[in-house]
Design a protein around this nucleic acid. Sequence first.
DNA 1: CGCATTCTGCACTGATCAGTGCAAAACTTG
DNA 2: CAAGTTTTGCACTGATCAGTGCAGAATGCG
Lengths: 200, 200
Amino acid sequence: MARPRTFDEDRVLEQAMRAFWLHGYEGTSTRDLCEATGLDRSSVYNAFTSKHELFRRALTRYTEAMTATQTEILEDGDRPAIERIRALFAKIIDDEFTFRGDAPSIGCLGVNTTVEFGGRDPEIARLLEQDAARRLETLRAAVEAGRRDGDIRSPRDPAALARYLNAVTAGIRVAAQGGADRAVLEAIAETALDAVTATA
Amino acid sequence: MARPRTFDEDRVLEQAMRAFWLHGYEGTSTRDLCEATGLDRSSVYNAFTSKHELFRRALTRYTEAMTATQTEILEDGDRPAIERIRALFAKIIDDEFTFRGDAPSIGCLGVNTTVEFGGRDPEIARLLEQDAARRLETLRAAVEAGRRDGDIRSPRDPAALARYLNAVTAGIRVAAQGGADRAVLEAIAETALDAVTATA
DNA sequence: CGCATTCTGCACTGATCAGTGCAAAACTTG
DNA sequence: CAAGTTTTGCACTGATCAGTGCAGAATGCG
Protein backbone atom coordinates (compact mmCIF):
# COMPACT_ATOMS: atom_id res chain seq x y z
CA MET A 1 0.00 0.00 0.00
CA ALA A 2 2.73 2.35 -1.01
CA ARG A 3 4.78 3.28 -3.97
CA PRO A 4 6.87 0.28 -5.02
CA ARG A 5 10.56 0.42 -5.87
CA THR A 6 11.55 0.74 -9.45
CA PHE A 7 14.75 -1.24 -8.91
CA ASP A 8 15.72 -4.72 -7.88
CA GLU A 9 17.64 -4.53 -4.63
CA ASP A 10 19.70 -7.57 -5.52
CA ARG A 11 20.71 -6.17 -8.87
CA VAL A 12 21.68 -2.87 -7.29
CA LEU A 13 23.73 -4.68 -4.66
CA GLU A 14 25.51 -6.59 -7.39
CA GLN A 15 26.34 -3.41 -9.30
CA ALA A 16 27.48 -1.60 -6.17
CA MET A 17 29.67 -4.57 -5.31
CA ARG A 18 31.25 -4.38 -8.73
CA ALA A 19 32.02 -0.69 -8.28
CA PHE A 20 33.61 -1.24 -4.86
CA TRP A 21 35.50 -4.18 -6.26
CA LEU A 22 36.97 -2.09 -9.04
CA HIS A 23 37.89 1.03 -7.11
CA GLY A 24 37.85 0.18 -3.42
CA TYR A 25 35.76 1.74 -0.67
CA GLU A 26 37.45 5.14 -0.51
CA GLY A 27 37.85 5.23 -4.26
CA THR A 28 34.14 4.81 -4.90
CA SER A 29 32.02 7.91 -4.26
CA THR A 30 28.30 7.85 -3.65
CA ARG A 31 28.01 9.50 -7.06
CA ASP A 32 29.93 6.62 -8.62
CA LEU A 33 27.52 4.26 -6.93
CA CYS A 34 24.56 6.12 -8.40
CA GLU A 35 26.10 5.96 -11.83
CA ALA A 36 26.80 2.24 -11.45
CA THR A 37 23.32 1.43 -10.19
CA GLY A 38 21.22 3.99 -12.04
CA LEU A 39 19.69 5.10 -8.76
CA ASP A 40 19.46 8.57 -7.29
CA ARG A 41 21.32 9.31 -4.10
CA SER A 42 18.16 9.57 -2.01
CA SER A 43 17.08 6.15 -3.25
CA VAL A 44 20.41 4.69 -2.26
CA TYR A 45 20.22 6.24 1.20
CA ASN A 46 16.58 5.28 1.52
CA ALA A 47 17.34 1.66 0.76
CA PHE A 48 20.78 1.22 2.31
CA THR A 49 21.07 4.00 4.92
CA SER A 50 24.74 4.85 4.27
CA LYS A 51 27.70 4.24 2.03
CA HIS A 52 29.30 2.13 4.73
CA GLU A 53 26.21 -0.01 5.17
CA LEU A 54 25.87 -0.48 1.42
CA PHE A 55 29.47 -1.57 1.33
CA ARG A 56 28.94 -3.97 4.20
CA ARG A 57 26.04 -5.57 2.38
CA ALA A 58 27.90 -5.69 -0.93
CA LEU A 59 30.89 -7.30 0.78
CA THR A 60 28.65 -9.80 2.54
CA ARG A 61 27.08 -10.68 -0.77
CA TYR A 62 30.50 -11.13 -2.32
CA THR A 63 31.96 -13.33 0.42
CA GLU A 64 28.85 -15.47 0.57
CA ALA A 65 28.80 -16.05 -3.17
CA MET A 66 32.54 -16.63 -3.33
CA THR A 67 32.66 -18.96 -0.35
CA ALA A 68 29.65 -20.91 -1.62
CA THR A 69 31.37 -21.48 -4.95
CA GLN A 70 34.59 -22.53 -3.27
CA THR A 71 32.76 -24.84 -0.91
CA GLU A 72 30.95 -26.43 -3.81
CA ILE A 73 34.24 -27.13 -5.53
CA LEU A 74 35.91 -28.43 -2.37
CA GLU A 75 33.03 -30.69 -1.41
CA ASP A 76 32.41 -32.22 -4.83
CA GLY A 77 32.36 -35.91 -3.87
CA ASP A 78 33.00 -37.19 -7.37
CA ARG A 79 36.70 -36.41 -7.46
CA PRO A 80 39.63 -36.98 -5.11
CA ALA A 81 40.27 -34.19 -2.60
CA ILE A 82 43.59 -33.19 -4.13
CA GLU A 83 41.83 -32.68 -7.45
CA ARG A 84 39.25 -30.51 -5.72
CA ILE A 85 41.96 -28.34 -4.25
CA ARG A 86 43.57 -28.13 -7.66
CA ALA A 87 40.21 -27.16 -9.12
CA LEU A 88 39.86 -24.43 -6.51
CA PHE A 89 43.11 -22.85 -7.64
CA ALA A 90 42.03 -23.19 -11.25
CA LYS A 91 38.76 -21.43 -10.48
CA ILE A 92 40.50 -18.58 -8.67
CA ILE A 93 42.88 -18.08 -11.56
CA ASP A 94 40.03 -18.25 -14.00
CA ASP A 95 38.15 -15.55 -12.11
CA GLU A 96 41.11 -13.23 -12.45
CA PHE A 97 40.78 -13.40 -16.21
CA THR A 98 37.04 -13.45 -16.66
CA PHE A 99 35.60 -10.98 -14.15
CA ARG A 100 37.87 -8.14 -15.15
CA GLY A 101 36.56 -5.50 -17.55
CA ASP A 102 39.07 -4.58 -20.23
CA ALA A 103 42.14 -3.74 -18.20
CA PRO A 104 44.19 -5.59 -15.55
CA SER A 105 42.84 -8.02 -12.98
CA ILE A 106 40.76 -6.62 -10.18
CA GLY A 107 41.68 -9.31 -7.69
CA CYS A 108 39.40 -10.41 -4.90
CA LEU A 109 37.12 -8.00 -3.10
CA GLY A 110 37.86 -9.83 0.14
CA VAL A 111 41.62 -9.44 -0.26
CA ASN A 112 41.24 -5.88 -1.50
CA THR A 113 39.14 -4.98 1.53
CA THR A 114 41.50 -6.73 3.95
CA VAL A 115 44.31 -4.61 2.56
CA GLU A 116 42.38 -1.34 2.34
CA PHE A 117 40.88 -1.48 5.83
CA GLY A 118 43.70 -3.48 7.41
CA GLY A 119 41.62 -4.37 10.44
CA ARG A 120 40.93 -0.72 11.25
CA ASP A 121 37.20 -1.16 10.80
CA PRO A 122 36.06 -3.69 13.43
CA GLU A 123 32.75 -4.53 11.74
CA ILE A 124 34.38 -5.21 8.37
CA ALA A 125 37.23 -7.08 10.04
CA ARG A 126 34.81 -9.38 11.84
CA LEU A 127 32.92 -10.02 8.61
CA LEU A 128 36.11 -10.97 6.81
CA GLU A 129 37.31 -13.10 9.71
CA GLN A 130 34.10 -15.09 9.79
CA ASP A 131 34.32 -15.66 6.07
CA ALA A 132 37.96 -16.73 6.33
CA ALA A 133 37.07 -19.14 9.13
CA ARG A 134 34.40 -20.75 6.98
CA ARG A 135 36.72 -21.12 4.02
CA LEU A 136 39.50 -22.48 6.20
CA GLU A 137 37.18 -25.09 7.62
CA THR A 138 36.18 -26.52 4.23
CA LEU A 139 39.80 -26.35 3.13
CA ARG A 140 40.87 -28.26 6.22
CA ALA A 141 38.26 -30.93 5.58
CA ALA A 142 39.49 -31.30 2.01
CA VAL A 143 43.07 -31.60 3.25
CA GLU A 144 42.07 -34.35 5.65
CA ALA A 145 40.25 -36.18 2.88
CA GLY A 146 43.28 -35.83 0.67
CA ARG A 147 45.42 -37.31 3.37
CA ARG A 148 43.08 -40.28 3.68
CA ASP A 149 43.31 -40.70 -0.10
CA GLY A 150 47.07 -40.78 0.23
CA ASP A 151 47.55 -37.79 -2.06
CA ILE A 152 48.39 -35.36 0.71
CA ARG A 153 51.47 -36.72 2.36
CA SER A 154 52.63 -33.66 4.28
CA PRO A 155 52.93 -34.49 7.98
CA ARG A 156 51.80 -31.00 8.92
CA ASP A 157 48.59 -30.22 10.77
CA PRO A 158 45.66 -30.07 8.30
CA ALA A 159 44.52 -26.76 9.77
CA ALA A 160 47.99 -25.33 9.15
CA LEU A 161 47.97 -26.67 5.60
CA ALA A 162 44.58 -25.06 5.09
CA ARG A 163 45.89 -21.71 6.29
CA TYR A 164 48.87 -22.11 4.00
CA LEU A 165 46.69 -22.86 0.98
CA ASN A 166 44.47 -19.91 1.83
CA ALA A 167 47.47 -17.60 2.05
CA VAL A 168 48.61 -18.83 -1.36
CA THR A 169 45.26 -17.93 -2.88
CA ALA A 170 45.72 -14.40 -1.57
CA GLY A 171 49.23 -14.36 -2.99
CA ILE A 172 47.89 -15.45 -6.37
CA ARG A 173 45.31 -12.64 -6.36
CA VAL A 174 47.96 -10.07 -5.56
CA ALA A 175 50.26 -11.48 -8.25
CA ALA A 176 47.39 -11.21 -10.72
CA GLN A 177 46.82 -7.57 -9.82
CA GLY A 178 50.54 -7.05 -10.20
CA GLY A 179 50.19 -8.05 -13.84
CA ALA A 180 51.15 -11.74 -13.82
CA ASP A 181 49.76 -13.72 -16.75
CA ARG A 182 47.82 -16.94 -16.59
CA ALA A 183 50.76 -19.28 -17.02
CA VAL A 184 52.60 -17.66 -14.14
CA LEU A 185 49.61 -17.97 -11.83
CA GLU A 186 49.14 -21.61 -12.81
CA ALA A 187 52.80 -22.34 -12.09
CA ILE A 188 52.47 -20.72 -8.66
CA ALA A 189 49.43 -22.86 -7.88
CA GLU A 190 51.10 -26.07 -9.04
CA THR A 191 54.22 -25.31 -7.02
CA ALA A 192 52.12 -24.53 -3.98
CA LEU A 193 50.52 -27.96 -4.18
CA ASP A 194 53.95 -29.57 -3.94
CA ALA A 195 54.05 -28.50 -0.30
CA VAL A 196 51.04 -30.61 0.57
CA THR A 197 51.73 -33.60 -1.67
CA ALA A 198 55.37 -34.02 -0.65
CA THR A 199 56.38 -36.19 2.28
CA ALA A 200 58.58 -33.57 3.88
CA MET B 1 71.65 32.75 -2.14
CA ALA B 2 68.08 32.10 -1.08
CA ARG B 3 66.11 31.11 1.94
CA PRO B 4 67.00 27.54 2.92
CA ARG B 5 64.49 24.84 3.76
CA THR B 6 63.63 24.29 7.37
CA PHE B 7 62.99 20.59 6.85
CA ASP B 8 64.95 17.55 5.83
CA GLU B 9 63.52 16.22 2.59
CA ASP B 10 64.44 12.66 3.48
CA ARG B 11 62.74 12.80 6.83
CA VAL B 12 59.61 14.27 5.26
CA LEU B 13 59.60 11.54 2.64
CA GLU B 14 59.88 8.93 5.36
CA GLN B 15 56.95 10.42 7.28
CA ALA B 16 54.82 10.75 4.16
CA MET B 17 55.60 7.14 3.29
CA ARG B 18 54.44 6.07 6.71
CA ALA B 19 51.16 7.95 6.28
CA PHE B 20 50.49 6.39 2.87
CA TRP B 21 51.46 3.01 4.26
CA LEU B 22 48.94 3.29 7.05
CA HIS B 23 45.98 4.67 5.12
CA GLY B 24 46.62 4.15 1.43
CA TYR B 25 46.83 6.73 -1.31
CA GLU B 26 43.17 7.71 -1.47
CA GLY B 27 42.85 7.47 2.30
CA THR B 28 45.62 9.98 2.93
CA SER B 29 44.69 13.62 2.30
CA THR B 30 47.19 16.37 1.68
CA ARG B 31 46.15 17.68 5.11
CA ASP B 32 47.05 14.32 6.65
CA LEU B 33 50.42 14.57 4.95
CA CYS B 34 50.97 18.03 6.41
CA GLU B 35 50.11 16.77 9.86
CA ALA B 36 52.43 13.78 9.45
CA THR B 37 55.32 15.86 8.18
CA GLY B 38 54.83 19.13 10.05
CA LEU B 39 54.97 21.01 6.76
CA ASP B 40 52.50 23.48 5.33
CA ARG B 41 50.71 22.59 2.10
CA SER B 42 52.59 25.14 0.05
CA SER B 43 55.87 23.70 1.26
CA VAL B 44 54.78 20.24 0.27
CA TYR B 45 53.72 21.41 -3.17
CA ASN B 46 56.84 23.51 -3.51
CA ALA B 47 59.06 20.55 -2.76
CA PHE B 48 57.10 17.67 -4.30
CA THR B 49 54.81 19.30 -6.91
CA SER B 50 51.76 17.10 -6.25
CA LYS B 51 50.28 14.46 -4.00
CA HIS B 52 50.77 11.88 -6.72
CA GLU B 53 54.43 12.79 -7.16
CA LEU B 54 55.02 12.72 -3.42
CA PHE B 55 53.45 9.28 -3.34
CA ARG B 56 55.60 8.11 -6.22
CA ARG B 57 58.72 9.23 -4.40
CA ALA B 58 57.59 7.74 -1.09
CA LEU B 59 56.82 4.44 -2.80
CA THR B 60 60.17 4.48 -4.58
CA ARG B 61 61.88 5.06 -1.27
CA TYR B 62 59.96 2.19 0.28
CA THR B 63 60.64 -0.33 -2.46
CA GLU B 64 64.30 0.57 -2.62
CA ALA B 65 64.78 0.21 1.11
CA MET B 66 62.75 -2.98 1.28
CA THR B 67 64.41 -4.60 -1.71
CA ALA B 68 67.86 -3.61 -0.44
CA THR B 69 67.16 -5.30 2.88
CA GLN B 70 65.81 -8.41 1.20
CA THR B 71 68.76 -8.55 -1.16
CA GLU B 72 71.14 -8.24 1.74
CA ILE B 73 69.49 -11.18 3.45
CA LEU B 74 69.36 -13.28 0.29
CA GLU B 75 72.96 -12.61 -0.66
CA ASP B 76 74.51 -13.17 2.75
CA GLY B 77 77.29 -15.57 1.79
CA ASP B 78 77.86 -16.90 5.29
CA ARG B 79 74.81 -19.16 5.36
CA PRO B 80 73.29 -21.74 3.03
CA ALA B 81 70.79 -20.38 0.53
CA ILE B 82 67.85 -22.22 2.04
CA GLU B 83 68.64 -20.57 5.36
CA ARG B 84 68.71 -17.19 3.64
CA ILE B 85 65.29 -17.79 2.17
CA ARG B 86 64.08 -18.86 5.58
CA ALA B 87 65.58 -15.70 7.05
CA LEU B 88 63.75 -13.64 4.44
CA PHE B 89 60.42 -15.04 5.58
CA ALA B 90 61.40 -14.46 9.19
CA LYS B 91 62.23 -10.84 8.42
CA ILE B 92 58.95 -10.26 6.61
CA ILE B 93 56.99 -11.72 9.51
CA ASP B 94 59.02 -9.70 11.96
CA ASP B 95 58.23 -6.51 10.08
CA GLU B 96 54.53 -7.19 10.42
CA PHE B 97 54.89 -7.08 14.17
CA THR B 98 57.40 -4.30 14.65
CA PHE B 99 56.48 -1.59 12.14
CA ARG B 100 52.85 -1.43 13.15
CA GLY B 101 51.72 1.28 15.54
CA ASP B 102 49.38 -0.03 18.22
CA ALA B 103 46.71 -1.74 16.16
CA PRO B 104 46.77 -4.49 13.51
CA SER B 105 49.47 -5.06 10.95
CA ILE B 106 49.80 -2.56 8.16
CA GLY B 107 51.21 -5.02 5.65
CA CYS B 108 53.55 -4.03 2.89
CA LEU B 109 53.24 -0.72 1.07
CA GLY B 110 54.11 -2.49 -2.16
CA VAL B 111 51.33 -5.04 -1.76
CA ASN B 112 48.91 -2.40 -0.52
CA THR B 113 49.63 -0.22 -3.54
CA THR B 114 49.37 -3.14 -5.96
CA VAL B 115 45.93 -3.86 -4.57
CA GLU B 116 44.76 -0.25 -4.34
CA PHE B 117 45.84 0.79 -7.83
CA GLY B 118 45.46 -2.64 -9.42
CA GLY B 119 47.51 -1.65 -12.45
CA ARG B 120 45.22 1.27 -13.26
CA ASP B 121 48.03 3.80 -12.80
CA PRO B 122 50.67 2.97 -15.44
CA GLU B 123 53.48 4.89 -13.75
CA ILE B 124 52.93 3.22 -10.39
CA ALA B 125 52.44 -0.15 -12.07
CA ARG B 126 55.76 0.15 -13.87
CA LEU B 127 57.50 1.13 -10.66
CA LEU B 128 56.11 -1.89 -8.85
CA GLU B 129 56.91 -4.20 -11.74
CA GLN B 130 60.52 -3.10 -11.84
CA ASP B 131 60.81 -3.64 -8.11
CA ALA B 132 59.21 -7.07 -8.38
CA ALA B 133 61.60 -8.00 -11.19
CA ARG B 134 64.58 -7.06 -9.05
CA ARG B 135 63.33 -9.06 -6.08
CA LEU B 136 62.51 -12.05 -8.26
CA GLU B 137 65.99 -12.02 -9.69
CA THR B 138 67.74 -12.22 -6.31
CA LEU B 139 65.23 -14.83 -5.19
CA ARG B 140 65.94 -16.88 -8.28
CA ALA B 141 69.67 -16.69 -7.66
CA ALA B 142 69.12 -17.88 -4.09
CA VAL B 143 66.99 -20.76 -5.33
CA GLU B 144 69.72 -21.82 -7.73
CA ALA B 145 72.30 -21.66 -4.96
CA GLY B 146 70.02 -23.73 -2.74
CA ARG B 147 69.72 -26.29 -5.47
CA ARG B 148 73.50 -26.50 -5.77
CA ASP B 149 73.65 -26.95 -1.99
CA GLY B 150 71.23 -29.83 -2.31
CA ASP B 151 68.69 -28.22 -0.02
CA ILE B 152 66.30 -27.25 -2.78
CA ARG B 153 65.27 -30.47 -4.42
CA SER B 154 62.22 -29.30 -6.35
CA PRO B 155 62.66 -30.06 -10.05
CA ARG B 156 60.78 -26.91 -10.99
CA ASP B 157 62.30 -23.98 -12.83
CA PRO B 158 64.14 -21.68 -10.38
CA ALA B 159 62.39 -18.64 -11.83
CA ALA B 160 59.02 -20.30 -11.22
CA LEU B 161 60.05 -21.18 -7.67
CA ALA B 162 61.09 -17.57 -7.16
CA ARG B 163 57.70 -16.33 -8.34
CA TYR B 164 56.05 -18.84 -6.05
CA LEU B 165 58.04 -17.71 -3.04
CA ASN B 166 57.30 -14.09 -3.88
CA ALA B 167 53.58 -14.83 -4.09
CA VAL B 168 53.76 -16.51 -0.69
CA THR B 169 55.30 -13.40 0.85
CA ALA B 170 52.35 -11.39 -0.48
CA GLY B 171 50.00 -14.01 0.95
CA ILE B 172 51.71 -13.74 4.33
CA ARG B 173 51.30 -9.95 4.33
CA VAL B 174 47.63 -10.24 3.53
CA ALA B 175 47.17 -12.90 6.21
CA ALA B 176 48.86 -10.58 8.70
CA GLN B 177 46.51 -7.74 7.80
CA GLY B 178 43.67 -10.19 8.18
CA GLY B 179 44.65 -10.61 11.81
CA ALA B 180 46.77 -13.77 11.78
CA ASP B 181 49.18 -14.04 14.70
CA ARG B 182 52.87 -14.71 14.54
CA ALA B 183 52.70 -18.47 14.98
CA VAL B 184 50.27 -18.77 12.09
CA LEU B 185 52.46 -16.73 9.78
CA GLU B 186 55.51 -18.77 10.76
CA ALA B 187 53.65 -22.00 10.03
CA ILE B 188 52.64 -20.68 6.61
CA ALA B 189 56.25 -19.79 5.83
CA GLU B 190 57.55 -23.17 6.97
CA THR B 191 54.93 -25.00 4.96
CA ALA B 192 55.71 -22.90 1.91
CA LEU B 193 59.35 -23.97 2.11
CA ASP B 194 58.30 -27.61 1.86
CA ALA B 195 57.42 -26.98 -1.77
CA VAL B 196 60.99 -26.09 -2.64
CA THR B 197 62.78 -28.59 -0.41
CA ALA B 198 60.69 -31.60 -1.43
CA THR B 199 61.67 -33.76 -4.38
CA ALA B 200 58.26 -33.67 -5.98
C1' DC C 1 73.64 46.82 4.34
C1' DG C 2 70.63 45.63 0.34
C1' DC C 3 69.42 42.86 -3.51
C1' DA C 4 67.97 38.51 -5.49
C1' DT C 5 65.91 34.36 -4.48
C1' DT C 6 63.60 30.86 -2.25
C1' DC C 7 60.71 29.30 1.36
C1' DT C 8 56.77 29.69 4.51
C1' DG C 9 52.08 30.77 6.43
C1' DC C 10 47.56 31.84 5.44
C1' DA C 11 43.69 32.63 2.83
C1' DC C 12 41.60 31.43 -1.01
C1' DT C 13 39.82 28.67 -5.32
C1' DG C 14 36.30 25.57 -7.55
C1' DA C 15 35.24 20.82 -7.19
C1' DT C 16 33.72 17.11 -4.81
C1' DC C 17 32.60 14.63 -0.57
C1' DA C 18 28.70 12.08 2.34
C1' DG C 19 24.40 12.91 3.62
C1' DT C 20 19.53 15.46 4.01
C1' DG C 21 14.94 18.01 3.24
C1' DC C 22 11.08 18.30 0.72
C1' DA C 23 7.58 18.23 -2.59
C1' DA C 24 5.75 15.71 -6.28
C1' DA C 25 5.01 11.09 -8.11
C1' DA C 26 3.36 6.40 -7.92
C1' DC C 27 1.47 2.78 -6.08
C1' DT C 28 -1.92 -0.33 -2.80
C1' DT C 29 -5.76 -0.75 -0.21
C1' DG C 30 -10.31 0.55 1.15
C1' DC D 1 -11.83 7.42 -6.79
C1' DA D 2 -9.49 8.86 -2.41
C1' DA D 3 -6.53 8.15 1.54
C1' DG D 4 -2.23 6.52 3.13
C1' DT D 5 2.48 5.32 2.40
C1' DT D 6 6.75 4.90 0.26
C1' DT D 7 9.83 6.16 -3.45
C1' DT D 8 11.86 9.41 -6.33
C1' DG D 9 14.16 13.64 -8.32
C1' DC D 10 16.31 17.75 -7.29
C1' DA D 11 18.26 21.18 -4.68
C1' DC D 12 20.63 21.91 -0.85
C1' DT D 13 23.89 21.41 3.44
C1' DG D 14 28.55 22.01 5.65
C1' DA D 15 32.85 19.68 5.29
C1' DT D 16 36.66 18.41 2.91
C1' DC D 17 39.22 17.64 -1.35
C1' DA D 18 43.70 18.90 -4.27
C1' DG D 19 45.92 22.69 -5.58
C1' DT D 20 47.17 28.01 -5.94
C1' DG D 21 48.27 33.12 -5.11
C1' DC D 22 50.54 36.19 -2.59
C1' DA D 23 52.73 38.79 0.91
C1' DG D 24 56.27 38.57 4.14
C1' DA D 25 60.13 36.09 6.20
C1' DA D 26 64.71 34.29 5.85
C1' DT D 27 68.82 33.41 3.83
C1' DG D 28 73.46 34.05 0.65
C1' DC D 29 76.00 37.06 -2.06
C1' DG D 30 77.70 41.43 -3.49
